[in-house]
């Protein structure tokens, strides 16, 4: 802040208080993720910048992962990247064990419940992440599930997570769920309709370009993973590097 208490150097030396050193198990690696569900697809996108404080550790550290199952499921755990990577790695193992034990691929709904138990399992030493899962549900419709760090979760049409979530989320309310928009003829509130894949990708690019403009922890590259019944496609889009 703008003011600090004045400490007299002489008395500070005389009454040198003991300095407490403490290990801090968490840090924040910035970045932002975003997922939108469509009628027969889902997208999960994330920037590839990896930071600590004001330093950029990497301009290309992808964080949107495809789980080893068929049909595939996309997952990203944004926040403290060491915890995110660990969660995704362990989730991958659990998803494989599931297929061995049950002789079938895990559904997105079951995967979401599994993530809840994994996150809550560390209730008193949490994974410091905002987790988003995207895939196709059993009817083939796009599904997005989002989680808080201790496993509270919800299925949604769209969700932004991470550093610039507060910048992107109101934009999504407005453009995906058509909040605060009214029909010109009837005067009734507009109801959300499924977006086409092309429109969805345009929206994702706009959201990230805007977030990059105003948030220092977002930038470098955008990685968009698109899941359809054909499988997973990946698209890259350059973001500002400043």
């Amino acid at each position: 802040m703008y003011s600090e208490p004045y400490i007299d150097p002489a008395s500070a030396h005389a009454a040198a208080a003991p300095i407490e050193h403490r290990f801090n198990p968490y840090s924040d690696n910035g970045g932002t993720i975003l997922a939108i569900a469509g009628s027969d697809f889902a997208v999960l996108a994330g920037d590839t910048r990896h930071t600590t404080g004001y330093s950029i550790n990497s301009r290309f550290q992808p964080k949107v992962h495809t789980l080893p199952c068929d049909p595939p499921i996309l997952v990203s755990a944004n926040g403290y990247s060491a915890d995110g990577d660990t969660l995704v790695r362990r989730l991958g193992q659990r998803v494989q064990w599931y297929s061995y034990n049950h002789n079938k691929a895990i559904s997105v709904a079951a995967c979401a419940r599994l993530i809840q138990t994994m996150l809550y399992g560390k209730r008193f030493f949490p994974y410091y992440v905002h987790t988003i899962v995207a895939g196709l549900d059993e009817e083939g419709r796009g599904a997005v599930y989002s989680f808080d760090p201790v496993g509270s979760y919800e299925r949604e049409q769209c969700r932004a997570g991470g550093a610039a979530a507060s910048l992107i989320m109101p934009f999504l309310d407005n453009q995906v769920n058509l909040k605060n928009q009214y029909d010109v003829q009837t005067g009734e509130p507009k109801t959300a309709v499924y977006l086409s894949l092309d429109d969805t990708i345009k929206l994702v690019k706009d959201a990230f370009s805007s977030a990059t403009e105003r948030h220092i922890h977002v930038g470098d590259h955008l990685e968009i993973k698109i899941i359809t019944k054909e499988g997973v496609k990946v698209e890259y889009f350059p973001l500002k590097r400043d």
Binding site: L167, M169, S210
Partner: peptide
């Protein structure tokens, strides 16, 4: 202000 930055920058 954070939400407003996100909205204004995109609209």
């Amino acid at each position: 202000s954070e939400q407003l930055f996100g909205m204004c920058e995109s609209l």
